[in-house]
Simulated assay, not measured.
Amino acid sequence: MFNPERPLAPPEKAFDEPWQAQALALADTLVQAGHFTPTQWAAALGAALTTFERDGAPDTAQTYYNAVITALEQLTEAHTDISETERRQRRADWEAAYRRTPHGQPVTL
């Protein structure tokens, strides 16, 4: 991110974690593939952010990227042949795989 107080300094990192960049790249890929429109993406993300704010979530990058995931999940269920049940099961499978994978090793199902 550009720092106006230090215009010649290298940009600060844009993401705290790689998954944050991957989530936004996934959203862009789904838009480019025609699964949903940029307007639908913006509306879903805005709605998720509003819900998090209403529920008292702090205004942080973590909250923003949690809203990104929420919007992606909702749009995926609405605009692909993946059901909520299938999505929940796949997420549970990945979480179980993540927990059993030794640190530094790739996660596989």
Rank of each mutant, 00 (worst) to 15 (best):
R87L: 14
T80Q: 01
D81T: 15
D16F: 01
H35C: 06
R6F: 01
D16Q: 05
R99P: 10
Y64T: 02
T101F: 15
A27S: 07
D81L: 13
T39W: 05
T85H: 08
R99H: 15
A9M: 10
R100Y: 03
I82N: 03
Y64S: 03
R88V: 12
P4E: 01
T76W: 00
E5S: 08
G46V: 07
L26T: 09
A47T: 14
S83W: 08
F36Y: 12
P11D: 05
D16C: 02
A47R: 15
Y65R: 01
A92N: 04
T63Q: 02
Q74W: 02
R54H: 08
F52E: 05
V68W: 08
T39S: 13
E77F: 09
E12I: 07
A48G: 03
I69K: 10
E86M: 11
L8T: 12
A57W: 06
T29W: 06
Q32A: 11
F2L: 11
F52H: 07
D55T: 09
W41A: 07
P4F: 00
E84A: 15
A21Q: 11
H79I: 00
Q20F: 01
P102W: 12
P102S: 13
S83G: 15
E17D: 03
Q40G: 07
E73Q: 07
E12N: 11
A42H: 11
A25N: 08
R88F: 04
S83V: 12
R87P: 01
H35P: 03
Q62R: 01
D16Y: 01
A92T: 07
A43K: 05
D93P: 08
V107I: 15
A47C: 11
E12F: 10
E77I: 15
T39C: 03
R100I: 06
F52P: 00
A48H: 01
Q40M: 07
F2M: 08
P18A: 11
P7M: 02
R100C: 05
E17Y: 04
N3T: 13
K13S: 00
W41S: 06
P102M: 12
L26W: 01
E73S: 06
R91W: 09
Q74R: 14
R6H: 04
A33Q: 14
E17W: 02
R54T: 12
F52V: 02
L109N: 13
R100G: 11
T85K: 12
W41R: 09
F52A: 14
E5I: 00
P4Q: 05
T37I: 09
E77V: 15
Q20S: 02
A96D: 10
A25G: 07
D93Q: 15
T85Q: 12
A27H: 03
W41F: 03
P4V: 03
Y64M: 04
I69G: 02
